[in-house]
Amino acid sequence: MTTLRLRPEDPADAGAVRRVLAAAFARPDVTTPPEVGLVDELRGSDAWVPPLAMVAEYGGEVVGFALLTRVRVTSDAGVAPALALGPVAVAPHRQRIGLGTSVVQAALDAATELGERLVVVLGDPAYYRRFGFGRADELGLTSPWSGLGEPWQALTLPPTTSGEGPPPRGEVVFPPPWSKV
Rank of each mutant, 00 (worst) to 15 (best):
T112K: 05
P92A: 01
L68I: 12
A22V: 00
L141F: 12
A26M: 09
A14W: 05
E41P: 01
P81I: 01
Q95T: 03
A66P: 07
V55Q: 05
P177W: 14
L67T: 04
R169W: 13
G37L: 01
T69R: 00
L68M: 08
K180M: 08
E150M: 01
A84C: 10
L21K: 14
P168C: 02
D46S: 07
P125T: 09
V120G: 09
G134L: 02
P33R: 02
T74Q: 03
V73K: 04
P159H: 07
G165H: 15
D13V: 01
A154C: 04
R72V: 14
E9H: 00
T161K: 08
V20R: 10
M1H: 13
T101E: 12
S45V: 02
V88L: 14
E61S: 08
W178M: 13
G170E: 07
F65G: 06
A80K: 14
V79G: 07
G147R: 08
R135C: 04
V173A: 10
V103M: 14
P8E: 09
V88S: 08
E171V: 05
R5Y: 01
T32A: 04
Q153E: 11
V181N: 13
E41M: 15
T2Y: 06
R130C: 06
T31P: 05
V173N: 08
A12C: 14
D137W: 02
T74W: 06
V88I: 12
D137M: 02
G115R: 05
E9M: 02
A89P: 06
T2I: 09
P166K: 07
D10K: 04
V90F: 15
R129K: 15
D46N: 10
P144D: 14
G140A: 12
V49E: 04
W152L: 00
V181M: 15
G132T: 13
W152M: 03
S179M: 07
A107P: 06
R72N: 13
G115E: 13
D124I: 06
P175F: 00
P144R: 06
L157M: 11
T32D: 11
P151Q: 03
V36D: 05
G44F: 11
A110H: 12
E164D: 14
S179K: 12
M54L: 05
D29Q: 06
V172A: 08
L52E: 03
V36H: 03
P28G: 03
R135W: 05
E116M: 01
A126E: 09
P51V: 09
R130Q: 15
L157I: 03
P11A: 04
V172Q: 04
A53M: 00
V181T: 15
V88C: 10
H93Q: 13
A107I: 00
G44W: 05
S75T: 11
E9T: 01
A26C: 10
W145P: 05
G123L: 09
A14M: 12
S162R: 09
